[in-house]
Design a protein around this nucleic acid. Sequence first.
RNA 1: GGGCGCAUAGCUCAGUUGGUUAGAGCGUCUCUCUUACACAGAGAAGGUCAGGGGUUCGAGUCCCUUUGCGCCCACCA
Length: 910
Amino acid sequence: MTEYQLPKAYDFKSTEPRIYEMWEKGGYFQPSNDPRQPGFDPAKKPFVISIPPPNVTGELHLGHPLFVSMEDLMIRYHRMKGEPTLWVPGTDHAGIATQLQVEKDLLRTEETTREELGREKFLERAWAWKAKYHSIITQQIRRMGASCDWSRERFTLDEGLSRAVREAFVRLYEKGLIYRGPRLVNWSPGLKTAVSDLEVEYSEEPGKLYYFKYMLSASETEYIPVATTRPETILGDTAVAVHPKDKRYKKFIGKNVIVPILGREIPVIADEYVDREFGTGALKITPGHDPNDYDIGQRHGLPILSMLDREAKVTEVGGPYAGLDRFACREKLWADMQAAGLVIKEEQYSINVPRSQRGGEIVEPMISEQWFVKIEPLAKAALEAVRDRSIKIVPERFEKVYYNWLENIRDWCISRQLWWGHRIPVWYCADCGGKTCARTDPLLCAHCGGKNIQQDPDVLDTWFSSGLWPFSTLGWPEETPDLKYFYPTTLMETGYDILFFWVARMIMLGLEFTGQAPFETVYLHGLVRDEHGRKMSKSYGNVIDPLVVMDEYGTDALRFTLLVGSTPGQDMNISEKKVEANRNFANKIWNAGRFVISAIASLGDRGPQTVDRTTTVHGQPSTVNWTLADSWIWARLQQLVRDVERLFQAYQFGEAGRQIYEFFWSDFADWYVEAAKLQMQKEETKAQTVETLARVLDICLRLLHPFTPFVTEELWGHLRNATCHSSLATLAQDWPEALIVAAWPEPREPEGWEAGKTADFALVQEIVRSIRNLRAEKKVSPAKRISAAVVGGAKTDLLGEQAAVIAALAGLDPAQFAVHKSLVTKPEDAVALVVGPVEVHVPLSGMVDADEERTRLEKELSSLQVQIERLEKLLASDFANKAPAAVVQKERERLASFQETAEKLKAQLS
RNA sequence: GGGCGCAUAGCUCAGUUGGUUAGAGCGUCUCUCUUACACAGAGAAGGUCAGGGGUUCGAGUCCCUUUGCGCCCACCA
């Protein structure tokens, strides 16, 4: 018995690392059916998740433990169900994000820039950065309990994945789905790279609408009034557009106007795009710096002027303003126009400012040479895959969002003017100008055979490589055994915020390159916010560091909080308070477990005779000696197993967790364990009680394991050990060596006896509660054993059997507690409690005030009358005919019970 | 301009085929260190489920609508 002296409080700090090491060393994270191992069976269907690869930027936030917990939950669940289960881990090089971090670090430590350092040296630094933060982030993922197969870990820039990226690019290129050309793209002047449409975020900000005059070239006085939010772009104007039917400006169409300050003449054109109602009804056209203007320019064959360079400084196009920063230019030009009498007015105006998702600076639309993927054919296939249910999105409403985006998609700009990433596999020939795109680095130009070739300096958008992730990590383009067996994967779990960035692209590229949807289901989780629903940000100071939380409360507490606090696709608010509450739950599990384990140990290995095993109920040995509490907890547990299974199938993990919590704490720990203490005092019920405790705990630990893997594994080890060394040893004969691979509890259909036992125990609970309630009201010391007389009526036999339980749980003196079928004379000086068909008389000499009693009973009676009237009315209405018989029957029974109670109360009153 | 989500106890949230008197955690109040757990136990207070209308025998749950908050998409100068 002494060997099971477990510590009073669950010590996660010493447990977690030990348990994780045991799992990892034990090889439990590898699939049970593995193409790399002998005895592999290709016919078994595996369950596969590829991890959303965390960035190697070094930033850890609550999104990480959230997705790790979700995925680990599903992986553990399927593993316990006996399916070959694979979770592929890895990390993402995260082009812009990481490069920025390295540049920042460079500036801080050496006060130098990447340009000064040069490409090679800079990349060395980036790889060193990667090495450091890769090991940190994977360590953190381990800390979260992730049961992923580390032997299959990948990195988006590793050799294999680089080959996959190269292959993908070349295939698209050869198919004509990749092109290069000057286009208007979003340019980030600080980062000095193009970014895709998705990487631009718009924010409403106060700004100004500037009204000014576009003077007619043929006139000294006539002008077209024009409004703009970016006056500096006047320098790049190549036309002024008006609506063809606009009476005000019709006469100017075809004439020329003069660009302020610069004096260039540009035409007035007519285009239906112009909104006559907005501003002045005349629109300045800057095809080089505005996407709409670009389109209009294309329609009218207008020249394109680039008046800003890569750093957003004015080019020579801007004449006297050349060299000025874009905002300085705005001010100076406007002042000069004011002096020239060209200004009409300024108005306060709210503008939608495009900002870079990374740097936060204002993005400029600019013309530049970039690589693009012709996305339409890919998008079409991706749309079809979801429409025909090859891929299911959970929650379903995101399917609409997905359709909407893909239906209006524009070509994907995949080149970035960065160094950290996959270099574009295209070489330009200085001799013939031809482009050579190749799987392996070419030595000669494919067109003229010249040696004078140079590789494109740009790299690919990070999302190009992560788009290949589900198959590139399994070995694609090689037909590896892993790829054959594990692809397509089963599930993609990630945040809804990267549905377009990542999920849609994986689907498009997966279909394109493998001909198969890369996964069957997409499960989208919400974002983690602070306790008041605010986004976590450093400037708010409301950021919760997962590491600090895990240090303070343990991994299980954090995992349970994240898992139980979330509903699919819905953002969740988290606070330390919640984690603390779940730390308490882990401790509850620990202590209930501790109790059960010491009970098992107390049996000894030859202990009391074990129960009769001739018949079974739901796999548990059934005996005529089963107590009501035994039957009840078993029935409740089976119900729980069924509910959890149903909820898991529906991806309702949070609800499943809450139900297990509720069962464990309320039903098992608060009621059954208390009843068990009594049952264990009697030799004839001791063995079966301990066995029930052991069985229920065992199943609870299995159900909880995907949520709180550490405490359950640790406790289960003790449970298994204690059981094996007790008279219950046969119970544990099929148990494996670790909970992580123990069988998931199988739901079974009820056998028919459950409802009756549940109702009977509910009556016992009601009686106990009402007595406890009375004690609290009358301030009877918890230590004081009081007496009571129960009038059981039809329930007399049941209550007679349960007398000891009721007495123990309600703090009654068993010697002064009796159950009678009826009582001729009611006890004197006693409070009468009416619980359904049962009366409980509790003598409390000196504490009972007759008037008080009367008032209490009257109050109870009147609220009961209200219920009775309501039910009588209900049963007299259409309800009786139209509602299902079972529902009506239930209400009838309720009414009868209320009426019975009311009668008893009336009798008490008189 | 389109689309979506949310509104339930003081706070944070559950409540998914519509069916008892709507639940939990935290917080509050009262008792208790009862031999698993004070990271606990027992009890209590606290809600016209945002407003209005509809469908139904029956609505927190389905439909319509109003209001407030949030998010996503979109080229209105």
